[in-house]
């Protein structure tokens, strides 16, 4: 489904990704772990199509198409979803309005008719229940005045409504307490399916206690330095990142 070949990218002329190779098949859940500054967020953003990142080499195939050639919204309509590390606030724009506009944009792209108001509302309400959210938040402005946990849950709600083919969760666990983390994980797990792939980008093992990945990759200095099964994450938890990068010692202490 996703094939990343020798992907290299710079931000403000600073080289961040230095040759990433990764293949993700339908149904798989991949975790990408790594210390701060290893390029994790850059990787998620370059896949989603953020403009300030310059791809200098390599290619990315998504369902056989050249992903890097597509616009941000085209990627989204083709089923790529990014759960933001820092979800954006949009004053005055209702949550439900955004959901509806996004879903219909996707349906139109797929040649499907717009969902009528009742069907849409039922669909959204069901997902709201899944995320253990209050329906009232549907009518609030997008992420405005939401707590950190609410914002992350709101991201997963959008994911649940848009039913992506490939979901990238960028540090979705950060800033969540255990209860919120469990709810988020429950939402994500309910979306696991043989047709859908997921990439979890995270610094810590914590999220992986609740969402079991099939593969774990360690990103450091802009490259994947190790790949393995779920046991790799546990190893990282014990050892920290120090063995990869001496400068990451600080993080070891925190772990």
């Amino acid at each position: 489904m996703l094939e990343i070949k020798n992907l290299q990218a710079t931000v403000a002329e600073k080289s961040i990704l230095k040759g990433i190779n990764l293949t993700v098949n339908p149904g798989e859940v991949h975790a990408i772990m790594g210390p701060n500054g290893s390029g994790k967020s850059t990787l998620s953003n370059v896949l989603a199509g953020r403009e300030h990142i310059d791809v200098t080499a390599g290619e990315v195939l998504y369902n056989g198409k050249n992903l890097l050639d597509m616009d941000v919204e085209e990627r989204a309509r083709e089923g790529l979803f990014l759960a933001f590390q820092y979800p954006v606030e949009i004053p005055g724009v209702g949550n439900i309005y955004l959901l509806k506009a996004a879903l219909n944009a996707k349906r139109q792209h797929q040649g499907l008719p717009e969902l009528d108001a009742m069907d849409f509302l039922n669909l959204v309400k069901e997902k709201v229940k899944l995320m253990e959210m209050n329906e009232a938040m549907l009518y609030r402005s997008v992420n405005e005045g939401f707590s950190g946990g609410e914002k992350k849950r709101n991201e997963i709600l959008q994911m649940a409504v848009l039913e992506p083919t490939l979901a990238i969760l960028d540090e979705t666990d950060s800033g969540l307490d255990i209860d919120a983390l469990k709810i988020v994980a429950k939402g994500v797990n309910s979306l696991r399916s043989p047709q859908r792939a997921m990439i979890l980008v995270t610094h810590y093992q914590r999220l992986l206690d609740y969402i079991k990945p099939d593969f774990v990759h360690v990103l450091a200095g802009g490259k994947i330095v190790r790949s393995g099964g779920p046991e790799l994450a546990l190893e990282l938890e014990k050892e920290g990142y120090a063995w990869i990068d001496p400068s990451a010692k600080q993080s070891t202490v925190n772990l």
């Binding site: 989603a48 199509g49 953020r50 403009e51 616009d71 941000v72 919204e73 990627r75 989204a76 309509r77 979803f81 990014l82 933001f84 979800p87 954006v88 949009i90 955004l98 506009a101 996004a102 944009a105 996707k106 792209h109 959008q158 848009l162």
Partner: peptide, 9 residues
């Protein structure tokens, strides 16, 4: 970027 990532033009 956020809106476009959700598929809006």
């Amino acid at each position: 970027f956020f809106c476009r990532q959700r598929g809006l033009s």
